[in-house]
Amino acid sequence: MIPAKFDYVRPSSVEDAVEALRQGGEDAKILAGGQSLLPVLRLRLAAPSVIIDLGGIPELRGVREDGDRIAIGAMTPHHDVMRDDLVKQHVALLGQATETVADPQVRHRGTLGGALAHADPAGDLGAPALALDAEFVIAGSSGRRTVSAAEFFVDYFTTAIGEGEILTEIRFPRYTGWKSHYEKFNRTAQAWSMVAVAAALKVDGGTISEARVGLTNMGTTPIRATGVEQALVGQPATADAVRAAAERATEGTAAPSDADAAADYREHLARVLTGRAVLAAAG
């Protein structure tokens, strides 16, 4: 099926993109990797008047060190993120979650910024971004601003990116030496996460000294399992201790119900998978 008609612009700078967005108004749509947008257009579930393709802006692509942060351009494809040495070394959890996104072809085109800005609650990159306290750099006509992950995810498919703004970069603190794991549960390899858990741990001498846990698809946004984090700190990385802490995984969640999983089952999965994710991370 073919999308409805639209105009197309391919700006070569962030400033031009912001200007194009201003001119395009409400019906303008940003095209990043297009791996969610193109299917939506083909099904004619959306019919924007103009598509602004960020693919021509070199600045938005790549992973770099920026002081104590690892900065990833919003247009960096998943394939590049998961293979990047800086990511592997300092933000391994993000790389692990990225490996589970869709399939190789989609990972070649799909981008970190596109996925995060799309903010599908079943998407796999929100939970690690939230758990790892990522910062989101957003450009608009009045310059750039930075919002925390906690502020970024607002609702289903809704983020802190305002009208006329573009996500340009995602910045992560360094988690060098941390252990991490992304535990994904889906019905088939192609299916989206029913529930998934992102876990990163700092383990000192067998004791968990810091913990970050994020949940995928347990609410309208990615959710930080702070109760689990608190319960883990100071505990030995043993099965019993971890499972006990994982019982708190559903605190603050609002699990959706659908044909694949009603809320009670999702809550159960969140507890089981949290235990598994933390144990695998501690592995």
Partner: peptide, 17 residues
């Protein structure tokens, strides 16, 4: 356990949502 809504979508999980 809870009754499962077999015929609905949660807002997440791709296009069907």
């Amino acid at each position: 356990t809870q009754e499962t809504p077999v015929d609905t979508h949660s807002p997440g999980a791709g296009l069907g949502s």
